[in-house]
Write a protein that binds this DNA or RNA. Structure first.
Lengths: 363, 363
DNA sequence: CCCAGCACGGTAAACGTTTACAGCGAGTTT
DNA sequence: AAACTCGCTGTAAACGTTTACCGTGCTGGG
């Protein structure tokens, strides 16, 4: 682990100045003879450019951070999988942060942008607090948020549309003749939890179905919580012919419980998950799930960030990725294991944000 | 995105020198009055230390890289999940590289260590070539390899024991009375593929079972490949009562095919996977799988690296993580869905490496 | 034959830190 | 009262690059 050569070492060996070395290494116009000498020397010494020194001078680290709640969650995983190659192709490295959805940790990440160890940040917070918004507004590096932020927030933003997603699922179940559609949700104080709760009521109403608190359960976004919720529902003998789950994990938990209770899926109870993670395809019966386009959202976020890095002054943009219902056996039975629906090419990139620039007042 | 304050800005405002500012910020002994002035100024300016400049001077980036074949693979995911918190607790950030198992890409990562953008690297290559070994030996930053390297390689190393793992599986199947145990493997030119092939033959021999090429298939480590292999086997009407799969994904593919063929699992054919990924628990019937301790390997690798960063001169170490058989429904039926076996606390950390230091010769 | 123009390359400053060293004033010792 | 110690602080160099600016020597036009 000897001290590596620097441009000084090269300059000495090649008998030129460090400025020439730098120029050759950066491909700036130089005499052939000099180029040759420098490259030979660099080659012989096994020189590699020091990224840190370079960053200090150029004010670019060629690194981008991605902060998510939990790497274990397949949703974020799908995002990382898309983000990574996009960034790599553009010459950026990916720094990973797992915040466990702890607000303080997320604020910390935002704060640490001041250290300038990355050129930008993609963040996917579960909850968006005022503190988040304040930090985002004053961040020292460009930020892209995956998830909904209040209208008018001046930040590049990628959203899923869980409202439409829930509606797709309910419509699907309704079309299959199901009328008692239970709902297993995640925490209501999370952005997705709240959105899905509202969407569920709305979708029922549209279809002329009554909203019945007796068949709604709120728990956590985990498999065990899903099982717990499903059991609570069954114990109450609430009688459902379908279960809408806010999450694939919740749905898997529900499947476990239904199976244990001797109920057939989908004959007795149809089940729909959300996020269309790998698990949905792996489970049996395979799980019908509403894809909220995790992969597409990741890709879009990476692209928004790259665009921003190339032009700091552009207007913030909003990308909304449309949901897609992926029908599998848990609603349609074994027969309908058709091909996975193809997602429409590019998600629509709607222009700037709505709302006034100035915070209060009515100018 | 205004230009942020530096220690110069603080020094000016506080009326002291930049040296004093630095000292205060680093907690070096300083007069109370000065401390107060500096901290006030820093606070008022919203100062944040520039990590790049700091790294340049201190030669420490507080970043560590993890290079794996594919983030999408649950095995690596399990590793990342463990590596991340360990590094974070020690004040390191995690930089992610996905190499798609392309040798050139992996060499590239090793080479780029010369850029000194990280303090160390954890790498999990699928194949280990001579070029890998050469680069590892001359790497400009400490490296930990997850996966087997030739004995005598002077590098911190974490290994799974797939040989024992395969034996556990075969023994289990044998104990259940299965005698025609097919084998669906991955590519033989990968380290795990080769190891598992050898282990399979060996384990059969130990149990006094004949090796029959007719019930062995080699494909890829993916679900579709597993399905293909299983179908080939069935088409050949080879007649098996169990399938040992080199991978959970292969096993899932096999389950699909068996189900489609109307064969009951485990009554007609028992199936064992390997890696014990999340998918194993999610599938139905749930999949008996040999855990090779991905999580433990990730953790161990992170710890080896941290130790090495604290003492560059220590001897390289080898950690071997013992496999654990996780019995689920695909072999034992619904009944045996017992609790997950508890992995023994700390994997044994055997001392240095075997083999001579000098490459050739017999001193 | 002189000088403008040009191609090339060297000198030095800058990026934002950390840190070795020296300076300085206030006690303390002789 | 000189010399010395001690606690604190400031000056400046260094980390390894990039780049503005200037100097040199050559070419060609008048």
């Amino acid at each position: 682990m000897a001290e590596g050569p620097t441009i000084n070492t090269i300059a000495e060996r090649a008998g030129v100045s460090i400025a020439s070395v730098s120029r050759v290494l950066n491909g700036l116009p130089t005499r052939q003879e000099t180029v040759r000498k420098v490259l030979t020397a660099a080659e012989e010494l096994g020189y590699v450019r020091n990224a840190v020194a370079r960053s200090l001078k150029s004010r670019r680290t060629h690194q981008v951070a991605f902060a998510m709640a939990d790497i274990g969650n397949p949703v974020y995983l799908a995002m990382v999988r898309q983000i990574q190659p996009v960034l790599k192709a553009a010459g950026y490295r990916l720094v990973l942060h797992s915040t466990d959805a702890i607000v303080a940790d997320e604020i910390d990440v935002l704060h640490s942008l001041g250290e300038r160890y990355v050129d930008g940040l993609i963040m996917s917070p579960l909850r968006v607090t005022d503190e988040h918004l304040k930090m985002i507004a004053t961040a020292r590096a460009p930020v892209v948020i995956i998830g909904s932020v209040p209208d008018g927030t001046r930040v590049d933003n990628v959203r899923a549309d869980s409202r439409t997603g829930v509606r797709l699922a309910i419509d699907h179940l309704h079309a299959l003749g199901r009328r008692r559609i239970g709902f297993l949700n995640g925490p209501l104080d999370t952005v997705p939890g709240a959105a899905r709760a509202a969407a569920y009521r709305e979708a029922l109403k549209e279809r002329g179905l009554p909203y019945d608190e007796g068949i709604v359960e709120v728990g956590d976004f985990y498999r065990a919580a899903g099982a717990r919720a499903a059991r609570a529902l069954l114990d109450r003998a609430a009688g459902v012919d379908a279960l809408m789950c806010a999450n694939d994990l919740i749905a898997l938990g529900a499947l476990d419980v239904l199976r244990a209770a001797g109920l057939r899926v989908p004959e007795d109870v149809a089940v729909v998950g959300m996020d269309d993670t790998d698990l949905a395809a792996a489970s049996w019966p395979s799980l019908t799930s509403v894809s909220l386009g995790s992969a597409e959202r990741g890709k879009a976020a990476a692209e928004l960030l790259l665009d921003r890095l190339n032009d700091m002054d552009r207007e913030p943009r909003l990308v909304t990725v449309p949901p897609v219902l992926v029908v599998r056996a848990s609603t349609a039975g074994e027969a309908a294991a058709g091909p996975v629906p193809v997602r429409q090419a590019v998600p629509v990139q709607t222009a700037p944000q709505s709302s006034p620039q100035s915070k209060g007042g009515t100018p």
